[in-house]
């Protein structure tokens, strides 16, 4: 694989920088594959992010140096999605920013729903809060900015867009993403295995559920 840059992080970490997010996803899948086959030195954390994968807790300096030297020569297959966990998330597309997203995309609000439910997403990485996944899948032309003024409280279950990503807020938090809908799906439950509905590599589809009729 070309374009991998390996940067030391402190005494025990390596940050592997890729050319693209897709390449980082493929590298992450390969690291998990090698870890499962005991082909990696013991490592405490494997943390994918936007364009990087962090390995933390490589306690053996010689093993860390050998890994850093070898990584740029790895053959890394593109993941074909085979064996990946798939989850379906029912959504009420009732978000306060749906009209703004439609305007940014240059389409009608109904078309936003059609495009979003018609897209196959992958969880690229998690961060921000436990169980908050950054989902890739929307074409580049549907990239949207964060809101100029973040909301002080975004309700749990809010389905939101920012940059190239879709995300779902696991619990109420401040947030600056554009809210397009709401789900009752439980994104985070530490009693469950896995605790996160969205783990890196999970395939996700959103489906539309009708708004509840007022009583």
């Amino acid at each position: 694989m070309t374009g991998l840059r390996v940067l030391p992080v402190g005494e025990r970490g390596l940050l592997i920088e890729c050319d693209s997010g897709e390449q980082a996803e493929a590298l992450h899948a390969e690291l998990l594959r090698r870890a499962a086959r005991d082909e990696l030195p013991p490592v405490a954390e494997i943390v994918p992010a936007d364009r990087t994968v962090l390995l933390d807790g490589l306690d053996d300096p010689a093993a860390r140096a050998a890994l850093a030297a070898g990584l740029p020569r790895w053959e890394i297959p593109q993941p074909d999605g085979g064996g990946a966990r798939t989850v379906v998330v029912p959504v009420r597309y009732d978000g306060p920013d749906l009209a703004e997203v439609a305007r940014l995309w240059g389409v009608a609000p109904r078309e936003v729903v059609r495009i979003h439910t018609g897209t196959g997403f992958r969880v690229a990485f998690c961060g921000f809060a436990p169980g908050f996944g950054y989902l890739r899948g929307l074409p580049e032309r549907y990239r949207v900015p964060r809101r100029d003024t973040p909301r002080t409280r975004v309700p749990a279950g809010s389905v939101a867009l920012a940059g190239p990503y879709t995300g779902v807020y696991p619990r109420p938090t401040p947030g600056g993403w554009q809210l397009i809908g709401t789900t009752d799906a439980v994104l985070w439950d530490p009693e469950r295995t896995p605790a996160a509905l969205f783990t890196p590599g999970t395939l996700v589809r959103f489906t539309e559920v009708a708004e509840e009729a007022p009583c």
Partner: peptide, 9 residues
């Protein structure tokens, strides 16, 4: 708790 950073913990 180690081993959960990839889930944002």
């Amino acid at each position: 708790r180690t081993g959960y950073a990839h889930l944002g913990v």
